[in-house]
């Protein structure tokens, strides 16, 4: 196995607090929430596993040295991935197959199945939106989710998907915990940061709002 310290990006001399902080930052970055419906979610999941294992190994090594009892008894790792959309039952067997195709990453198959399905009900629109999202067609994805919500306003799954399209980027990971977004910069929040940046870099106006 690789060096756990290297995985967390800290030197072996790091204090427990520093190790914990590095772990938390990485866990925030690769958290399932940040890779929600992402076509690369499986790679993030692998990263998360490595990080959890490395953290657990370090805490175990360190608590072992102190004859146990003190401090870290559990690694407190983030739990594994929850497959999104998997729990909902479909109204039809074809749409159920579409869900399976999306989950296994077979987007072309999902698309073909949807194209041959004539009943464009709320679920069809929702799944069409999910296919668009994975393809990177963000605008269409949002519009299909909107239609799904209009047709079936009570459905929590559809509403959750639409809410993610409308507000999801606000919670996206960004180093240093700054707000994420094109319109988020230039406001009051960003201004002090900008000034700081300009001062530090001496005329670094490129990144200034």
């Amino acid at each position: 196995m690789n060096d756990p310290y290297q995985i967390l990006g800290v030197p072996e001399t790091a204090t427990d607090e520093e190790v914990k902080r590095a772990y938390r930052e990485l866990a925030r970055k690769y958290h399932p929430d940040n890779y929600h419906d992402n076509p690369l979610a499986d790679l993030a999941q692998e990263k998360m596993k490595d990080i959890n294992a490395a953290y657990e190994q370090i805490t175990k090594m360190r608590s072992g040295g102190r004859s146990g009892g003190n401090g870290y008894s559990s690694a407190g790792g983030y739990s594994g991935y929850q497959q999104y959309g998997g729990q909902s039952a479909s109204g039809s067997s074809v749409l159920q197959q579409v869900r399976i195709a999306i989950q296994t990453g077979n987007i072309s198959r999902a698309e073909a199945l949807l194209a041959n399905y004539s009943d464009h009900n709320a679920e069809w629109n929702f799944l069409r939106g999910a296919v668009c999202y994975r393809r990177g067609w963000m605008d269409e994805a949002k519009r299909y989710y909107q239609t799904a919500c209009q047709m079936d306003p009570g459905n929590a799954e559809y509403r959750q998907a639409l809410e993610f399209m409308e507000r999801g980027t606000q919670t996206a990971y960004r180093p240093g915990g700054q707000p994420f977004g094109t319109e988020a910069c230039g406001g009051n929040l960003c201004l002090p940061l900008c000034c700081l940046w300009t001062l530090c870099n001496g005329g670094g106006y490129w990144f200034c709002c």
Partner: peptide, 17 residues
């Protein structure tokens, strides 16, 4: 702007991997 942000998010999540 939101649509652009979703693309930037996809770039960022890929970049981190």
């Amino acid at each position: 702007a939101l649509s652009l942000d979703h693309s930037i998010r996809m770039m960022a999540t890929a970049f981190e991997l």
